[in-house]
Nucleic acid binder design. Structure first.
Lengths: 185, 185
DNA sequence: CGTCTATTTGAATGTACTCAAAAGCGGTGG
DNA sequence: CCACCGCTTTTGAGTACATTCAAATAGACG
């Protein structure tokens, strides 16, 4: 699955593929387990082979904000922490029993040097991530809560079934009570 | 300036530098001129050599939302339109008399093929853009308007002087009247 | 100087949050 | 399999945040 994911943007020969896989141990993560801790430096990039995750931030008042969901076939980490070695702003929690490939920061750097084609792969990956986040910003500043909610279930219908109302509310930036009243309509 | 910008992440030899510059004609843009039109496909990536720009979206009700500001030394375009050849969601307007380098989509593709090191450059560029947008999303869903306003003037003090209150309000996603009342405190 | 737009102010309205309580739902242990 | 527990969701009242609209004031620019 991970090779198929990479194959969407670049093609690797067999030796590159095995080289890659050798640096990407996979682990299984039970539901509710947390694999990135807010406040700690995160030096691992994850690829979700199966299952799904939720990344959230907890502020000083205990308010939880969902930064992103990561379904299967996604790359996920606290990119700021991973790349700049600063404390993570988010925690990453398994929404269900999952399998992930793990790529450490040092292996990440090595891989990019050994297989320069991967620069292109990650360039395209980050391009798409950037575009996605920018569209979400536009959503946030220009749409009503109702419109953002409808957008969410339209764009991520599978996720919308897997996560709680409360988590969707914290993704949209509203309280669960308010989301409930919006849905009533 | 553009070579210095690129030199922050990769090093090019003289031939690569001249090759690069030959594909990047520069133009001067007078204040208020619009160089990307919302609704049209945008096939140019810009580098702001001097001056500054504002990217905004106009919705069906005529409401303006500022998606980003681009000061000097920034790369800017409607990335979704540029890469996926879809109609642009934003217009890009010069806040002052400016100079930009322009890179067409086809030259962009050529350059990446001819100078593979540029893959790394853009990978890093998009990484940073992704991190920036993700932090802005977190701001939007977790902070009050007052906090977001203070963050803005703290992070972009130079910009805060150059743009109007109204434009900052549309960047934060509130009305100018409300921002005015927030500032009074 | 005059015009155009930005900013401020205020009143009325709508949107969203807080708090508290009730109802629903899923998982766990007996 | 049922009863209980904890968490999510709903509901409602009261409050705070944010918008709309209109009008006054202040600035920018030709």
């Amino acid at each position: 699955m991970i090779l198929k994911n990479i194959g969407k943007h670049i093609s690797l020969n067999p030796s590159e593929k095995s080289q890659l896989l050798s640096l990407l141990p996979s682990i299984s993560v039970p539901k509710k387990e947390i694999i990135i801790d807010q406040g700690r430096i995160c030096d691992t990039l994850f690829f979700v082979e199966s299952g799904s995750f939720r990344a959230y931030n907890l502020n000083k008042d205990g308010k939880e904000s969902t930064i992103m969901f990561a379904p299967k076939d996604w790359w996920v980490t606290d990119m700021n922490s991973f790349l700049n070695k600063v404390p993570s702003l988010l925690s990453l929690e398994a929404l269900e029993n999952s399998m992930v490939y793990t790529l450490s920061r040092s292996n990440f750097d090595d891989l990019l040097n050994k297989i320069p084609k991967l620069e292109r792969f990650f360039r395209i990956l980050f391009q798409k991530a950037y575009i996605r986040e920018q569209l979400r910003v536009l959503d946030n500043i220009s749409l009503t809560t109702e419109e953002r909610y409808l957008n969410f279930i339209r764009k991520y219908p599978d996720l919308a079934e897997k996560v709680t109302q409360k988590q969707i509310a914290s993704y949209l930036g509203v309280t669960p009570e308010f989301l409930s009243s919006v849905k009533k309509k």
